[in-house]
Amino acid sequence: MKMPLPLIALAASTLFACDHRPLPPEPGVDGLEAVHVSGHLGSYRDCPEQAWENLDAERPNANLVDGDCATDQCGPLNCQGARLTFTLSNGSDTDAEGIGALVFVLDREGVEVAELPATALLDEDGDAFDGRLAAGDEVLLHLEFVGPLDIAALVGPADPDGDRELVAWRNGAPIRLVVTSQTHEDAGLDTPALYSLPEVDT
């Protein structure tokens, strides 16, 4: 049987794609599936030492809690870690265990430019998630991670001409979530642009 040229091209591209991790992982119809709910890149303006750019072994505390301050240098509103909220469902007929998560920031072309360290994976009530999801179940999870102080430095240079769209872009970037498991294939999603938490935005 002759295979039409477009199908050959598709098959070839699929084979090449298999050399890399799917971007993002395909939704697991029979496995884990993550769906984006909400998120932000945190607020580090008043605690820059807590931000991703200044991440090092001596950093005192990356796990900031809403509105609280991990140091005495807190500012007027926020010293708050970044957070991504998503639903995770297990469509398979086996329980999932050892669930964890990775976070990457994407540039304007959708390329991963940095991994942002996760600091906590919490359930809907803010308690630590135990990493287990029974077959057929769905949970809402909050993933807290270390956000950047200046997202523009990660996703592209500041616009020299002050174009409004680019200026607006400076505070936002999409995030790639990869959900890992000891028992199931990875799941994941790409968010729309997430932004630093605004001081005031009514």
């Binding site: 909400s38 998120g39 932000h40 809403d66 708050q80 957070r83 909220t85 605004p198 935005d201 009514t202």
Partner: peptide
Amino acid sequence: TQFITGHAFA
């Protein structure tokens, strides 16, 4: 939406 942003999207 004002409420959601005012509560850090949680």
